[in-house]
């Protein structure tokens, strides 16, 4: 297949509008921040409780 044919092929699938792209980017950043907070939280709690986090009475 030549390069020319690839260029001529129409784009398939859903194309996001600018608003949809902005919203998706904002959501992605929010998810990244939330996951980062969770990692830091687990790290600090591990320091507080020691490595035996699961070793405690119910």
């Amino acid at each position: 297949m030549s390069e020319r044919n690839i260029e001529a092929k129409p784009q398939e699938g859903i194309r996001l509008t600018e608003q949809q792209q902005r919203a998706r980017r904002a959501r992605s950043i929010a998810i990244a921040i939330a996951l980062g907070v969770l990692v830091v939280l687990f790290y600090i709690v591990t320091l507080v409780k020691g490595p035996g986090v699961l070793e405690r009475p119910l």
């Binding site: 859903i14 996001l16 949809q20 919203a23 998706r24 959501r27």
Partner: peptide, 11 residues
């Protein structure tokens, strides 16, 4: 349709 929901909507 792809979502247009912003972070504020989820909050």
């Amino acid at each position: 349709e792809p979502s247009i929901a912003g972070v504020g909507d989820y909050i």
